[in-house]
């Protein structure tokens, strides 16, 4: 049975959540990890792109910029309150 976009999105979310605060992932990092996990045939570039879009549009993840663009779990930023 082919892997659904939601299944890929869930796997990406789990990965981002596990490493939150320790390592930041770019869209390309997540795509490579999903290709390894599900196989290139099931988790191709288009499927991973759709999964990332689903994560971002649902608000489960956000894009951040720290010298490059990353995908993270939404969190309160220290600098927002002067920290």
């Amino acid at each position: 049975m082919p892997v659904t976009t939601e299944a890929i999105a869930d796997a990406m979310y789990a990965m981002v959540k596990e490493y939150q605060g320790k390592k930041k992932f770019k869209a390309g990092d997540l795509t490579k990890a999903m290709k390894q996990q599900f196989g290139e045939a099931d988790a191709d570039k288009a499927a991973c792109k759709a999964a990332i879009r689903s994560l971002i549009d649902s608000g489960r993840c956000v894009y951040t910029y720290f010298g490059g663009s990353f995908i993270e779990i939404p969190h309160e930023e220290g600098a927002a309150s002067g920290g």
Binding site: I56, H75, A80
Partner: peptide, 29 residues
């Protein structure tokens, strides 16, 4: 930098904060 943006987009907004927000509150963000 940071995490500001509009829903669905990862570009187009560059977050800027000052580190003296109590002295310059109108430009904290």
């Amino acid at each position: 930098g940071g995490i500001v943006g509009v829903l669905g987009y990862g570009g187009g907004v560059i977050g800027r904060y000052n580190d003296l927000q109590s002295e310059y509150p109108s430009i904290a963000h």
